[in-house]
Design a protein around this nucleic acid. Structure first.
Lengths: 148, 148
DNA sequence: GACAAATACATTGATATCAATATTAATGAA
DNA sequence: TTCATTAATATTGATATCAATGTATTTGTC
């Protein structure tokens, strides 16, 4: 006897059409490709842009809050900083108040790259937002926040 | 003279609060972690679940359409298949109609794992959807599709 | 049929992502 | 003060992701 378990094709269609995880991953990949392509002339990816922008603060930032803001694991942040420090765009300094901690900041050349990226971000973002029916962008942001 | 370009902090706040790319990536990571955790007892990640579910078809699938459905690069699909074939959950057969192409299918043990994952997916998805105000899930799906 | 162009997939190299674990330092309780 | 606990970050290993590129095959045109 053959005991192969068959999953109904309707289940596959249900997942394809309703799974918010799949659909958010898909949108995330599509948006990432779009922003990556636009930022490529600067040698930046969308994630590096977001990370560097989050480091543009009056006071240098510790790693924990930055990881939380980006909703990435702390170990991912450690790894993501390496290419940025290697290129001299981000500096990592010891925190005199807590010798376990590090303080993250943008270097002058990092600020220059980031400043050049801002108009690209604005243009690309406007193009993306234009694809959405009026008002949907704000609602989308609220819902995404509820999922994060 | 110091020629350091400064990006206004307001720009940082604008990106943080309005960038759909950042916010979709954040939600994608949060949802991925949630589904990964739920599926971990089966040794599946959210992406492997979506990929295997997309292979549950009456006829075996070629690689191109699967990559398009998942909105991943074709080279990503090639890489993603490796751990699944190694575990004996997915088989890759030559396509007699086109010797360049491959036909992807689930093995019996792959179907068994996937069948065990379905109730976990249903439960986890219901929990996630419950966090959204009524009716927002459908609207969200439409908007995500427009972004993909 | 010959051949250029297009198509399907694989490989390589770089970065992204997280779980598990390790290291170092600060904190709190006895 | 001592020492167990907690907190901040790093390392390792596995997988995910894509650009650039390579290989094999098919297709369309002459």
């Amino acid at each position: 006897m053959s005991n192969v378990i068959e999953i109904p094709f309707e289940t596959t269609l249900l997942v394809r059409d309703s799974c918010l995880c799949l659909q958010v991953q898909r949108a995330a990949r599509a948006l990432a490709r779009r922003f990556d392509e636009a930022l490529r002339p600067l040698g930046l990816t969308n994630g590096q842009f977001s990370l560097m922008m989050s480091l543009n603060r009056p006071e240098p930032a510790a790693m924990g809050p930055v990881a939380t803001l980006l909703a990435i694991d702390q170990t991912t942040l450690t790894a993501a900083l390496k290419p940025l420090t290697r290129r001299g765009w981000v500096n990592i300094l010891p925190n005199p108040k807590d010798r376990r901690a590090r303080l993250l900041g943008l270097t002058p050349s990092g600020k220059a790259v980031l400043a050049a990226a801002v108009p690209i971000w604005k243009l690309t973002h406007a193009e993306v937002e234009a694809r959405l029916p009026d008002g949907n962008a704000d609602r989308l942001r609220k819902v995404l926040l509820a999922l994060s």
